[in-house]
Simulated assay, not measured.
Amino acid sequence: MNSEKYNGLEILNRMKEILGLERDKDIAAHFGINPQMIYNWKARGTIPLDQCVQLRSEKGVSLDWLLLGLGDGEVDADYSSQVGDRDYTEVPLYDVEASAGNGSFFSQERVISYIKFRNDWLAREGLHAKDLASIRVSGDSMDGTLSDGDTVLIDCSRKKPDGVFAIRIGDSLRIKRLQTMADGSLRVSSDNALYQPETIHPENFGNIEIVGLCYWRAGRVF
């Protein structure tokens, strides 16, 4: 970008406006980059076009406004039905039972709804929209932590135990507590004491896939 034509600091401020963010590090978290990159943008006075195009795709914001400040930052009509509230990101809620047998839990054909999360909250938590999916809990194996019917937000970028994870064993999607043992094996347990834990040894790791960390839940208050 030509710095005489594009003012990097003004673009950065418009990015903050469209995302509902205030701090440079929150912008860095949204794009999944090191905060030092934001400092470099400001020092150079330019913003990489890739991030501008990403916001165009995510929010439907006019590039004329984002790059040049022309117009009022309105969302293009073609995007208006998809974008929704600019302060929020929509995370797909998947019908995982329907996709359990076809080898792909998270595909567009299996999206049954969307859950909105505030962009500033996602940024503070270090979560990125491209890594997120949500599913509903089925059964009582995680009672005490998760209940039947709860909705769980999964961060698919985090796959290293320990914690509560969505896992695939064969064609079955489960939510279990995972713990790495001293011998390298994986302890797979339920929080409901009625269910016995399993131990998966390294030679059998090919039979299990860690889908992602269960990061947040919503459900009924009992």
Rank of each mutant, 00 (worst) to 15 (best):
K5T: 15
K5G: 02
G8M: 09
E10A: 14
N13V: 08
N13A: 10
N13Q: 15
M15N: 09
M15F: 09
R23Q: 12
D24W: 02
D24C: 06
K25M: 05
D26M: 06
I27S: 04
I27T: 07
A28L: 02
I33M: 04
Y39P: 01
N40Y: 10
N40A: 07
W41P: 00
K42A: 05
A43K: 15
A43H: 12
I47P: 06
P48C: 02
D50N: 06
Q54G: 08
Q54C: 09
S57P: 00
E58P: 02
V61S: 09
W65I: 04
L68F: 11
G71T: 08
E74H: 08
S80C: 07
D85L: 05
Y88D: 10
E90I: 03
P92K: 01
P92L: 04
L93D: 01
S107N: 13
Q108L: 06
I112Q: 09
K116Y: 06
F117H: 14
R118H: 07
D120R: 08
D120V: 12
W121D: 13
L122Y: 11
L122V: 02
L122H: 01
R124M: 09
K130C: 05
A133D: 06
I135K: 10
V137T: 09
S138K: 13
G139W: 12
S141R: 03
S147K: 07
S147E: 11
D148G: 03
D148T: 03
I154Q: 01
D155P: 08
C156Q: 15
K160D: 08
D162R: 01
F165K: 01
G170K: 06
S172W: 07
S172F: 07
I175Q: 12
I175K: 15
K176N: 01
Q179L: 01
A182C: 05
A182T: 00
V188H: 00
D191F: 08
N192Y: 05
N192H: 03
Y195I: 07
E198N: 12
E198H: 11
I200L: 15
H201L: 09
P202I: 03
E203S: 08
F205N: 02
I208F: 03
I210A: 13
G212I: 13
Y215I: 12
W216P: 04
W216F: 14
R217I: 09
G219C: 10
G219D: 10
G219V: 15
R220C: 05
V221L: 14
F222I: 11
